[in-house]
Nucleic acid binder design. Structure first.
Length: 628
DNA sequence: GCCGTTTTCGGCCCGACTGTTTTCAGTCG
């Protein structure tokens, strides 16, 4: 994919001119079955996941129809599906803005057809491609080990029904019907039954980083019992510190791969071995998490780290880049015409290609290869660069309707001291409006201010020099704040955030947030998308407007480091930083131990290409005080 | 079907594992 991507706001996509043209509506019929609205691959109200599924279906259709002629078309549709899956905003919104073709991987043809789907509920061209394929096959490809061709063959030859396709397939397998099909056998039939069992118990969500880390740590301590291991390292999206992780990837350097793989598949939490060869094995654990392990000769461990860390798109881009130089990359090393160069470290691998070392967090094919070539990669911000935590909840009873923290201010200050911070800010939720008059609220806030003043007077910590009196203030549905000017006057500065009415339109939500940010005491927009990973979608906002407002008015945007939030998300951090908007890091800790989560916030900052200078709380106390 | 500071035409990453095969196709990451 590309160099020098010009990423436009909101979506993380390259800029290309857009031309769109809608057409007509079609209803799909197949095997005497009419797709109803829920089952259809196409209807007017498609979300990103549905569009992605549709594009994969078209890809599969091309693969079946003419593998040779359509091989690259298949890849193109797959790439488009990937692109849609990883979009930061709803594709329907992008369509409404006429910007479909700005998405890298979506060109004139796909954009035109998607427009037709959004407008009419179907596309003539897509419909034609899908028309002679059994609908059930698009369900069957969701099974592990079943791709387009087998799915087609199964659906076609067994007459799998469009409704309950997988249940139907299971019946046929149990009846022994699959073993008789050409190209299948008893083993395949048994594998399909296992794949169906896996499918039924499959964890629907990707897991959060700390959970993935814990699972990986447990496997690592099991693997370390095997004495034949030189080095072992978790890779994949866990190493890239993506906000969620699908499966766990582990690399091992060893001289005796067989012994290591045997030990791995004997891990007590393994419930099923998906595959096991000479170089790698895949297993499913009791919690239905898949773990892939690859072994490699220690001399080539560097190239394995590179290969298995990914991302897929980074590797493809890197291999294309190398290909132009007459080189071929793989997990074994770098091949020229007549020689294989091996690498013990990733650093040497990238160096051989004429590139700076690319930190794992940046390996997403977002321009990092070209930046590495020009020595223009941002350097990753380290924990020791952070001088204070700007989002903390103590147990000081502020009579809020939201949750209080569980630990005392003093306890949290001591923790901050241990982390080497110079300052911190207590940002309990605002006192509730119900049951409190305006003057009650001011009284409570003064009580808190006095408490913090006393803490600042009686300092007996070695590093922390100042405690700031702040507050996390709800942005009410109309954009007003539940604290009066008099109340806000007690603060050093305020955070604002959304905790209700998440479903407003983009325009309404943007207006609401801008109003909430308007007050001069308000400095930070906290957990700005309000998403909770796996639980709640992001709110819709016009980020260009938000960023511009922040720039004009000297407001900052938070990266909330709580693992369930990681909000602002990485792709929006990238946009914010490009726009020149300053970022703050806060853990939103409600207990002392959660203050360590700052590391997750730093990962988001790195993935968003934020430099030290982009992050407000890398400033010394003196500089920070000037800013507020 | 998509894409481009070597290209608007001519390319499109690379390899492991499995089952059903007698040398490979399909699937996956």
């Amino acid at each position: 994919m590309g160099f020098e991507p010009t990423i436009s706001c909101v979506t993380g996509m390259r800029f290309k001119p857009a031309k769109l043209r809608p057409r007509v509506q079609i209803i799909i019929t197949q095997n005497n079955l009419v797709y109803n609205k829920n089952m259809s691959l196409m209807h007017k109200n498609m979300n990103n996941q549905k569009v992605s599924e549709l594009l994969r279906a078209i890809s599969a259709a091309y693969e079946i129809k003419g593998p040779k002629a359509n091989r690259f078309r298949t890849v193109a549709y797959d790439n488009a599906a990937d692109a849609v899956e990883h979009l930061g905003s709803e594709i329907k919104d992008i369509w409404q803005e006429g910007k479909l073709e700005e998405i890298s991987g979506i060109g004139e043809s796909i954009a035109q057809n998607l427009s037709e789907v959004f407008e009419k509920g179907s596309s003539k061209h897509f419909k034609a491609i899908l028309s002679d394929l059994p609908p059930s096959m698009f369900e069957l490809v969701k099974l592990n080990g079943i791709g387009p061709k087998r799915a087609y063959q199964l659906s076609h030859e067994l007459g799998i029904s469009a409704k309950n396709s997988i249940v139907d397939l299971e019946k046929q397998a149990k009846a022994g019907k699959i073993a008789n099909l050409e190209g299948f056998g008893r083993e395949s039939q048994a594998d399909i039954l296992k794949a169906i069992a896996d499918y039924k118990t499959r964890q629907p969500d990707r897991i959060l980083l700390p959970q993935a880390q814990k699972i990986a740590d447990e496997i690592l301590s099991w693997m370390k019992k095997c004495k034949k291991i030189d080095q072992i390292k978790p890779l994949g999206s866990l190493r890239r510190k993506a906000s969620t992780v699908g499966d766990i990837d582990i690399a091992v350097a060893t001289e005796v791969p067989g012994k290591v793989l045997d030990h791995f598949t004997k891990y007590p939490k393994v419930i099923r071995i998906l595959e096991k060869g000479k170089h790698k094995a895949s297993v499913v654990l009791v919690n239905n998490i898949q773990v892939d392990l690859i072994v490699m000769d220690p001399d080539s461990f560097g190239s394995l780290l590179q290969h298995f860390t990914g991302s897929k798109h980074h590797n493809i881009a890197l291999r294309n880049y190398a290909k132009d130089k007459g080189l071929s990359l793989s997990e074994y090393g770098i091949r020229t015409k007549n020689k294989l160069y091996k690498f013990k470290t990733e650093n040497d691998f990238y160096k051989f290609l004429g590139l700076d070392y690319i930190p794992p967090e940046l390996r997403e094919d977002m321009g990092e290869i070209e930046a590495a070539r020009q020595n223009k990669l941002p350097s990753v911000v380290k924990p020791r660069d952070i001088k204070g935590d700007l989002h903390l909840h103590s147990n000081f009873d502020i009579e809020t309707s939201h949750d209080l923290g569980v630990d005392s201010m003093l306890h949290m200050i001591k923790k901050a001291d241990g982390l080497g911070y110079e300052y911190l800010a207590f940002t309990e939720h605002n006192p509730s409006q119900s049951g409190h008059s305006e003057s009650d609220i001011v009284k409570i806030l003064k009580r808190k201010r006095d408490k913090i003043m006393r803490l600042n007077e009686n300092k007996n910590y070695s590093r922390v020099k100042k405690v700031f009196n702040s507050l996390e203030i709800d942005i009410l549905p109309d954009g007003s704040l539940p604290v009066s000017d008099k109340g806000l006057e007690t603060l050093d500065f305020g955070l604002v955030s959304i905790h209700s009415s998440f479903k407003k339109t983009r325009a309404e939500m943007t207006k609401r947030v801008l109003r909430g940010l308007d007050h001069p005491k308000v400095k930070i927009f906290a957990h700005p998308t309000a998403r909770i990973l796996n639980k709640r979608e992001s709110v819709e906002l016009d980020w260009e407007k938000i960023f511009q407002f922040c720039l004009d008015r000297g407001k900052w945007i938070e990266i909330n480091a709580a693992p369930k939030r990681l909000d602002l998300p990485d792709y929006l951090v990238r946009e914010a930083v490009k726009a020149g908007v300053k970022i703050t890091l806060g853990t939103d800790a409600h207990e002392v131990s959660a203050m360590d989560n700052i590391a997750y916030g730093l990962a988001v900052a790195a993935r968003g290409w934020a430099k030290k200078s982009d992050i407000i709380n890398t400033r010394s106390l003196k500089d920070f005080e000037k800013l507020i």
